[in-house]
């Protein structure tokens, strides 16, 4: 069973490489029971989106 520290590391690595089936299953199992890590995963997606906007100059004003 993964702990939160390992889960956050794996979530980050998921942006860099394809996680194995086993890794994805362990992530699922953990996040089903852990609100902190579920939120963390959402926050990572949010960060991605924010960065996309910033790099297209979207930070100022219009959507």
């Amino acid at each position: 069973m993964l702990n939160c520290k390992e889960v956050t590391r794996l979530m980050s690595e998921g942006y860099e490489r394809k996680l194995t089936l086993g890794e994805r299953l362990s992530l699922k199992m953990h996040t089903m029971m852990c609100i902190g890590c579920t939120n963390y995963g959402k926050h990572m997606d949010f960060l991605r989106k924010a960065v996309r906007r910033l790099r297209e100059g979207g930070a100022g004003g219009e959507r």
Binding site: C4, I35, G36, N39, Y40, H43, F46, K49, A50, R63
Partner: peptide, 19 residues
Amino acid sequence: GFWNPDDRPATWTDPDASF
């Protein structure tokens, strides 16, 4: 290796509105 209570990621409501 579990979150300390103070550092556990909170629920952000409608984060996209921040943009």
